[in-house]
Write a protein that binds this DNA or RNA. Structure first.
Length: 668
DNA sequence: CAAGTAATTGTTTTT
DNA sequence: CAATTACTTG
C-alpha cells in the first residue's frame, strides 16, 4: 500500500538490499552510507508484506539503536504498534529475556544479572577460599582473574592459553586459578547469577539444545544483525544457531569500523559468514550520504586496509564543503576554551547544541572541557565512561533490588552486609552463608543473633525491610522497602551521603514506576549507560545540549559539527595500545570512526602539553600530535592556531542557557 | 576480626 | 593526587 513509505529516497544498492528475498544477505556498508536506514527500510518492507512483527528479530549494538530502528520501521509502514511487538535489542538484552522465560528448563528458580563489578566481588570471595591471597609472591588480582575469564570465554580459547599469551605472571598459578574458575561457574549456577558472558553462553546453550533450540528457532523467520564486525565467537554461534542455513538472515557491517577486538570481536566474522553461507548475496554500500567531500577526503586517508577491501567513500553531497580544521593548542585548558568558543560561535550562527558533539578516546579526556562548559553554562550530556551505575551507593540499591526477586543472590547479600558497622569481610561471608540457608524470611531473625552485637540493631532494620520488600506485591512498595533498607546504610557509610541519598531517591522513583521490577533491574545492569542517561535527562528532554562522548559510544551516530579532542600520541592512539600491531590498527579504525561522525564540520585538537599520566602532580609533558595525522592527512586539512593569549572565561556573555546537571553529578 | 593508619599504585574502550 | 591495599592496633 504505502509503497513510497519505505522505498522513499533509497538508491539502487540500498533498494536491492531492502527488496532482497529470504536468501542470506550480507551488507557491507561504509560509514555514512545509510546502513541504518537500509536496515530499517528492509524491516518496514517485511512488515508491509504481511510479516507478523513478532516473527522479526533485530539484534543491534545498543538498546537505543534497537528502539529507534523498530519504531522507525513501524512508523514507515503505518503501524506504530508493530514496533513494540517486534523483537529488538542487544544480544545481551534479548538473551536475558529468553533466559528468564526458560529459567525452569535451565534449572534456575530466579536469575540475577551480575555486572563487571559484581563479578570481581564474587571472584574476590572465591580467591580467599582458593588460597590465592597473600603477599609472598605476586598473585593475580580479582580484576585480572575477571579479565582472563572473560577473554577466554569470548574468544573460545582455553584459560591456560590466554594466561600464557596475555597474562604471563599468572602462569605459575594456572592450576588453582582454573580450579577457582570451576567454582566460579558452579557458584553462579547454584545462586541463579548470570554475568554478561553467561547471558550469551546460556542463550547459545538453549539454542544448541535439540528440543528447546528447535522451538526457539521457530519463533522467528527473519533475523537481522547490525554491526556484525563487532560480534564475538559466542554471538556468531548464536546467529548461526538461529538461522542454520541462513534463510531470512541479514547482517550488516563494516570491517573498517571494527573497534571491539578487546571484547573478543573479530571483523573476520563478517567475511566468514559470507563464505560459510553458499547462497548468500553480498551487497556493498559505498555512496556516503552523510558527510561533505572534504571530511571524506580525510576519512579516506585515515581509513585502514588496502587492496580488495579498501573502499573510497564518495560524498553524494558533491565537492562543496569546508576542510577539516587541525587546531594546535598550548594545553588542555586552551583546548577546552577553543572547543567552547567554537561551539558557541556555531550556536550563534544557528546551529543547535544538539547538532554538535565532542568526541574523545577515553572518558577522562574531557575533564578540563567539562569544567569550562560548566563555568560558561553550556549544557552537556556525557556518554561513555562507566561512572553512573558503578558508583557504590547506586550499586548498593541495585543489590537490594536484586534480592527482592532472588533471595539467593550471594553477591548482593555480601555487599549489603558489608555496609554495616562492625561487619567486615569475614563476618559478611559467614552471615551471607547463614542467610542463604534460611528457608524463608522468617529465618532472618536467627541470623541476626549470629552477628556481632554492635551490628544487630542496624542489621535487624535492614533485614526487616528486605523481608518486607520480598513479600511486597507491587514495585512501589518493594522499592520503598529497599530504599528503607539502603538509605540508613548509605548515611552511615559515606561521609558525603546527602548527595548520594538524593540519587537513590531519584533512581527509586523510576524503579517504583515499573510494572516488571526484575526486568528493570536487569536492564539497569545490562544497559547502564542508556538506562541511567534516559531516566536522568528526562526532565530536560526538550532542552538543547551538547553531546560529549567516547568514540566507542558514538558509533553509529552523526552530528553536523564534530570536535575531536586530545588527538595526541598516548591519548589517541591510547598508550595502552602502542605495543602491539593489532592494538594500533584498532586505534586507527577508532580514529576513522571518529572522523566519519561529522556531517559538515570537523575540528581536530592537538594540545601540545598534557599532564603526565605517571605522576599526578601538576607536571606536564610534551605531547606529539597523533601519529594518524600523517602528512597526507595534513594535506587535506587546514592547520589553525587558536588565539594564544590567555583569555578569561566569559560567563554570562552568551546567556540564556539553563544549567543542567551532568550524569556524573547525578550519580556522585 | 574491624577499624584506623601508612604505603603504594594507579593506566581504555563496553555489553 | 586519590583511591585502593598492606600493616598495625584495639
Amino acid at each position: 500500500m504505502d509503497e513510497g513509505g519505505w522505498a522513499d529516497g533509497l538508491d539502487d544498492d540500498q533498494l536491492a538490499a531492502v527488496e532482497h528475498g529470504d536468501a542470506p544477505l550480507v551488507i557491507m556498508a561504509g560509514a555514512g552510507t545509510g546502513k541504518t536506514r537500509t536496515l530499517t527500510a528492509r524491516v518496514a518492507r517485511l512488515l508491509d508484506a504481511g510479516v507478523a512483527p513478532e516473527r522479526v528479530l533485530l539484534l543491534t549494538f545498543t538498546r537505543r539503536a534497537a528502539a529507534s530502528m523498530t519504531a522507525r520501521a513501524a512508523a514507515l509502514c503505518g503501524d506504530p504498534a508493530a514496533g513494540r511487538r517486534m523483537w529488538g535489542g542487544t544480544f545481551h538484552a534479548v538473551a536475558h529475556r529468553l533466559i528468564a522465560e526458560h529459567a525452569p528448563q535451565l534449572g534456575l528458580a530466579e536469575v540475577s544479572v551480575l555486572d563487571a563489578g559484581d563479578v570481581v566481588d564474587l571472584l574476590d570471595l572465591l580467591r580467599e577460599e582458593h588460597g590465592l591471597v597473600g603477599t609472598r609472591v605476586r598473585l593475580p588480582t580479582s580484576r585480572a582473574l575477571a579479565d582472563v575469564y572473560t577473554r577466554a570465554v569470548n574468544t573460545g580459547r582455553p584459560t591456560r592459553e590466554v594466561m600464557e599469551d596475555e597474562f604471563p605472571w599468572c602462569v605459575d598459578h594456572v592450576e588453582p586459578i582454573n580450579a577457582l574458575f570451576g567454582d566460579f561457574v558452579a557458584r553462579k549456577r547454584a545462586r541463579g547469577l548470570l554475568d554478561f558472558d553467561d547471558l550469551l553462553l546460556t542463550w547459545r546453550a538453549l539454542l544448541a539444545d535439540p528440543g528447546v533450540g528447535a522451538r526457539m528457532r521457530a519463533r522467528w523467520d527473519w533475523v537481522l544483525v547490525d554491526e556484525y564486525q563487532d560480534v564475538n565467537r559466542a554471538q556468531v554461534d548464536i546467529v548461526r544457531l538461529l538461522r542454520p542455513d541462513g534463510t531470512g538472515l541479514t547482517v550488516v557491517g563494516d570491517d573498517a569500523q571494527a573497534i571491539y577486538a578487546f571484547r573478543g570481536a573479530s571483523s573476520a566474522h563478517l567475511y566468514e559468514l559470507h563464505s560459510a553461507l553458499p547462497g548468500s548475496t553480498l551487497v556493498r554500500l559505498q555512496r556516503n550520504f552523510r558527510s561533505t567531500q572534504p571530511v571524506l577526503d580525510l576519512a579516506n586517508v585515515i581509513r585502514p586496509g588496502e587492496g580488495e577491501t579498501a573502499l573510497r567513500l564518495r560524498a553524494d553531497r558533491g565537492e562543496a564543503g569546508v576542510r577539516p580544521r587541525l587546531v594546535t593548542c598550548a594545553n588542555a585548558d586552551d583546548e577546552a576554551r577553543g572547543v567552547a568558543d567554537a561551539v558557541l560561535a556555531a550556536h550563534q550562527d544557528g546551529l543547535a547544541l544538539r547538532e554538535q558533539a565532542v568526541l574523545m578516546r577515553t572518558g577522562h579526556h574531557s575533564n578540563q572541557l567539562e569544567i569550562e562548559l560548566t563555568v560558561r553554562k553550556i549544557p552537556f550530556v556525557k556518554y561513555g565512561g562507566i561512572e553512573y551505575t558503578n558508583t557504590a551507593h547506586v550499586r548498593d540499591l541495585i543489590a537490594a533490588l536484586r534480592l527482592v526477586h532472588n533471595r539467593r543472590d550471594e553477591v548482593a547479600w555480601f555487599r549489603l552486609l558489608g555496609r554495616h558497622r562492625a561487619i567486615g569481610k569475614a563476618t559478611a561471608r559467614a552471615l551471607s552463608t547463614a542467610l542463604l540457608a534460611t528457608e524463608s524470611t522468617a529465618g532472618y531473625a536467627d541470623v541476626v543473633a549470629e552477628a556481632p552485637p554492635k551490628a544487630r540493631t542496624a542489621l535487624t532494620a535492614t533485614l526487616t525491610n528486605l523481608a518486607a520488600a520480598q513479600a511486597a506485591s507491587g514495585s512501589t512498595s518493594a522499592v520503598e522497602h529497599c530504599l528503607g533498607a539502603v538509605r540508613p546504610l548509605v548515611r552511615a557509610h559515606y561521609a558525603d551521603w546527602p548527595h548520594r541519598v538524593e540519587d537513590l531517591d531519584r533512581l527509586a522513583a523510576t524503579a517504583a514506576a515499573q510494572t516488571d521490577l526484575a526486568a528493570f533491574v536487569a536492564d539497569l545492569t545490562i544497559d547502564p549507560a542508556s538506562s541511567s542517561a534516559d531516566y536522568a535527562k528526562k526532565p530536560q528532554l526538550d532542552e538543547d545540549y551538547l553531546t560529549l562522548s567516547t568514540v566507542h559510544s558514538a558509533k553509529g551516530l552523526e552530528w553536523t559539527a564534530v570536535h575531536l579532542i586530545h588527538a595526541v600520541d598516548g591519548a589517541f592512539p591510547s598508550d595502552m595500545a602502542l605495543s602491539t600491531h593489532e592494538g594500533l590498527e584498532e586505534e586507527q579504525r577508532l580514529f576513522y570512526v571518529a572522523v566519519t561522525r561529522a556531517r559538515d564540520s570537523l575540528s581536530i585538537y592537538t594540545p601540545q602539553r598534557l599532564p603526565t599520566n605517571r605522576s599526578y602532580s601538576a607536571r606536564h609533558v610534551l605531547a606529539k600530535p597523533s601519529r594518524f595525522l600523517t602528512d597526507p592527512a595534513r594535506a587535506v586539512t587546514d592547520a589553525q592556531q587558536p588565539v594564544d593569549e590567555p583569555r578569561a572565561a566569559t560567563p554570562s556573555s552568551t546567556g540564556g542557557f539553563v544549567e543542567i546537571p551532568t550524569l556524573q553529578e547525578l550519580f556522585k
